[in-house]
Design a protein around this nucleic acid. Structure first.
Lengths: 114, 114
DNA sequence: TGAACATATGAATATATGTTCATATGAGTA
DNA sequence: TACTCATATGAACATATATTCATATGTTCA
């Protein structure tokens, strides 16, 4: 509670107390926000939708999405670190694919929002 | 296609062509990414989870989440502009609530991802 | 081993985003 | 009308993020 922020007296303190107890931990909210943040980028969404249709190596994604190899690679690292994509190595190439289809079902749900 | 970016020759051009046709428009991907971006913030997630439990006015959210009135108001505007929350005016106060429960079901789904 | 291929990565830069601060707006009340 | 309450908003600032550039790593093949 921060009386330095909000001087207002006519709040329903009982309800605030009640809901305050129902709230989850900051850690939880941080994790949720972080995953949405990862999905909140034009190019990462395009990468995921491409990978939904087919497995691709880095240079193929680079061509398909008209992005530099470096940019693709940086974005894939983020997606890897958040367990959204997986990869397999084949000779010199690294093929990426979706870790699970749940992300795609969420993307589809969001695309219905507009 | 950008040969200035990726000099690699050993790509499967046929597959790239095929998937390229299946991709949606940039506008669509932008809208999807934008909605995820709105959800990708610690404080906005907290606001939404609070509103899931109860309707609140700005100053109550300010107290509950320990944020300044201004910060809450700025964030609520973003959520309004993206049709995620709605509001009703009652005298001097403005009470906010969720536009629909779909956002919450997505938040729940995401929280299971970790 | 040397050379080309394919990807990853660190640093720098430019842009986007969130909060604060000051102030405006608008509604109720004395 | 003047004053308080409640919210909204614009500008400034600080931080976060995405891309580029240069380079490192690792693999294959001659």
């Amino acid at each position: 509670m921060s009386s330095q922020y909000c001087e207002i007296k006519s709040v329903r303190e009982d309800i605030i107390q009640e809901i305050s107890k129902k709230m989850s931990s900051n850690k939880t909210y941080n994790e949720i926000a972080n995953l949405f943040k990862v999905l909140g980028d034009f190019n990462r969404i395009r990468i995921l939708c491409a990978l939904y249709h087919h497995e691709f190596c880095v240079c193929e994604l680079s061509l398909l999405l008209d992005m530099s190899q470096s940019a693709i690679s940086h974005q894939l690292r983020l997606l890897r670190n958040n367990d959204i994509v997986k990869y397999r190595k084949e000779n010199k190439k690294v093929f990426y694919s979706l870790e699970s289809s749940e992300i795609i079902s969420m993307i589809k749900k969001v695309s219905e929002h507009g």
